[in-house]
Amino acid sequence: MVSLGIRRDLFAMVLLGSALVSGAPLEAQGLGDPDRGAEVFKQCTACHQIGDGAVNRIGPHLNMVFGRQAGGLENFRYSESMTRAGVDGIMWTVETLDIYLENPKSLVSKTRMNFRGLDRAQDRADVMAYLREFSQDPSDIPEAMPTATGTDHDLDPAILAIQGDPEYGEYLASECKTCHQANGAADGIPAITQWPVEDFVVAMHAYKRKLRPHPIMQMMARRLSDEEIAALAAYFEDLE
């Protein structure tokens, strides 16, 4: 086992080197150790099945998850939020899974996946390497990277710690209310009232950094400062 892991790592160094030389995108930099990933995955098995005969349980089965549209299994009942993420254009790739596994709410605010996330990039890389083994065409998905090189998508704690000014938030929020109803009703556009501040801030920064795909929301978020996002979060949290 150990020697196998080392060999993988050596192999990966070569791969990574060539990837960097050829200027391959981040997502092509590779995954981790599938054996270690199988261990990490144990905490997922209460809800998710994978492998021969895997079926949907509390969560959808994860066979062939790479290349699947978010919310894309027809016979699984997803949260509205997850279905919307799929329609907005989220596909499960190395990059999007990495973001989602780090903090599910960064991509899907009201996901039913009640999981705090994997902080360590190596854990995520290893789990994805394990998931890759159940993909239809693993050759399409990069393998093996030497150490945790994953990008941390988590927000700087200093950004999460900003205390927003609700009065400024109220003014800024007037722009949101053209589409998002102040009374919390949702009719084709999600409600954004009474969200926990952290969820709101994480979601807006995900749009701002284009981790989430919606073009209007990316545009609106792009011109908001960290303080303005905090102000909006503070205002909407208490809006009844």
Binding site: R84, V87, Q181, A182, G188, I189
Partner: peptide, 21 residues
């Protein structure tokens, strides 16, 4: 088609939003 349908549904949501605003 799914994206176009989502855009239409979004416009219905916007109508509800702006008229309530």
């Amino acid at each position: 088609d799914a994206m176009r349908q989502a855009t239409y549904e979004e416009s219905v949501g916007w109508y509800a939003g702006i008229t309530s605003d």
